[in-house]
Design a protein around this nucleic acid. Sequence first.
DNA 1: GTCTATACATCGATAGAC
DNA 2: GTCTATCGATGTATAGAC
Lengths: 204, 204
Amino acid sequence: MKRKAGPDDATDPRVRRHAQTKARILREAWKLAAQEGVPAISLGELARHVDLRQPSLYTYFASKNDLYDAMFAQGNEELLARIEGLTLPANPVDALKSFFREMTAFALEDPARYQLLFQRNIPGFEPSPDSYALALRFYEMYTRLMRAAGVESRSHLDVFAALVAGIQEQQIANNPGGTRWVRHLDWVIDMFLREVKRQKRSST
Amino acid sequence: MKRKAGPDDATDPRVRRHAQTKARILREAWKLAAQEGVPAISLGELARHVDLRQPSLYTYFASKNDLYDAMFAQGNEELLARIEGLTLPANPVDALKSFFREMTAFALEDPARYQLLFQRNIPGFEPSPDSYALALRFYEMYTRLMRAAGVESRSHLDVFAALVAGIQEQQIANNPGGTRWVRHLDWVIDMFLREVKRQKRSST
DNA sequence: GTCTATACATCGATAGAC
DNA sequence: GTCTATCGATGTATAGAC
């Protein structure tokens, strides 16, 4: 008995073409975001770059927020694929360094994407629960690696994430393309782990 | 011989009134910024709050950028007044902690002001040279105190500023009104100074 | 110095023909 | 699915009367 093709059937050529155009729009949206920042994307400009009229975009995204949400989800998927694809060293400290090296490379190669995923300044954008779940998966990986390196408390997790974000943000804002800040990440990690050990020692 | 009153003469009642109205506009602009963020300030809304029509604002500010610049300068002057008004402990480390305690309090009491002064995300705003000179004075104070505490290299100054900014930004973004991040500033300072000492020791 | 009126631009979103 | 046409709102800035 032949199954009737639903709107999600990837073999339906109309569905395939729809998905392809949607992907093309997203690709172009990332390009625009890289040039002028995510908040500066306008649907009119985006439509011109994909050879469509601006209202036609609404066939693919119900609203501008929907477009942002698709970008947010895609960015998180890219990040997760890269992080989960890493073969991490057995040594937990080295694993942590590899993790952050990869994450920092990801941040620097597309600051707009980093802004969308981690700074979330974009006015009027709120990620959907489904997209946000992807972001949580990254955070869980972070906590797991930190725990393996001896960092357990929420305070320490909070502070360390803030320190790393601070370095990455200064790098992107003040020295794009360089390494003025991020080249110090390794010793900052060592410094922090030493401090955690020290606090544990002195609290007993 | 009586001096002719120029347009800067503070005794000229018209000049005084102009300055007062300008100050009132600025006060209201800060209020609006605190509510919806600096970039969301619109001249129309601002005019309504000071009981003027929107075009009348152009008597006081030549453009929106001029308004931002006046806010930027005023914010920096407030910060400098607070910092320079501190009676700092003789111990350089304690002095550094006092300095950052005051700066953090300043940041938390008006996140929009902090954003304008230190994050500078505001689209289309570029501070004038005069205003920027104020920001440099703050940075000089920072370097002076750091040097007194044994931190000399540009790398260390860079990294530490990034760490502090990271903590402050996470605090503002994720826990406004709380102390989830900033309550750790003191031990982060200690940790950093210890690390600098350690690096000096091991490099000889 | 303040006002009315308006120019001028940009933007997101919808209606409805094809 | 794409288009033209348009709505409706918002925004900065200017012209010119009073």
